[in-house]
Amino acid sequence: MYEMIAFYLFSALTIGLFMVTVMSKNVLYAMTSLASAMVLISGFFFILGADFLGVVQLIVYVGAIMALYSFAMMFFDATRDIKEKNTNNALVFLLGGLSALVLVLIFAAPIHSDAIHALYPIHEGAGNAQDVGIVLFTKYLVPFEVAAVMLLVAMIAGIILAGKKMDHSLTKDLDADDEILVVKDRK
């Protein structure tokens, strides 16, 4: 009963907040609604018994990724509304229809679901964190290490890309950075 109430509440709120994220013109509104929808998605994980995944979702997504976005938004002009030129409707309808067709085909695909059996079953007695730890550090050790190396590479790439000329202001260009001024005048 409580599971049903929680499921419908979380799904309605998540879908509404993601609609705000996709449709809003303001970057600040989009980012706040995205962060709160991610908190609610961790609620889905807690309902499903994936406790460790929910905690990781809270720490990584809400903690790290949204903090990164909000720091990046300080470089861009966040308070101004975004003006977006709409593309032609025929292309949008064509692409939307094609993706809807693909989605229907995926859902209508026959699955022989009786033949699916658990490769790494969830143990009843042990907690979720213990289970995840045992499987992650035995069966998925190599992908785990590769993911760690990939995160290191991404960190170095982010520092190198964003770290050049950090002493220049991006939005106000007081030092008469000629290239940016020329581009702005042309618009």
Binding site: P121, Y140, M155, I159
Partner: peptide, 27 residues
């Protein structure tokens, strides 16, 4: 089955590195 949760962890790791590199490119 725990495999789905494992793949979700790797998706989260990939999303984190995508954001780090992508925001650098955006700047």
């Amino acid at each position: 089955d725990l495999t789905g949760q494992m793949f979700a962890f790797f998706v989260i790791a990939i999303a984190a590195s995508e954001v780090a590199v992508g925001l650098g490119i955006l700047i």
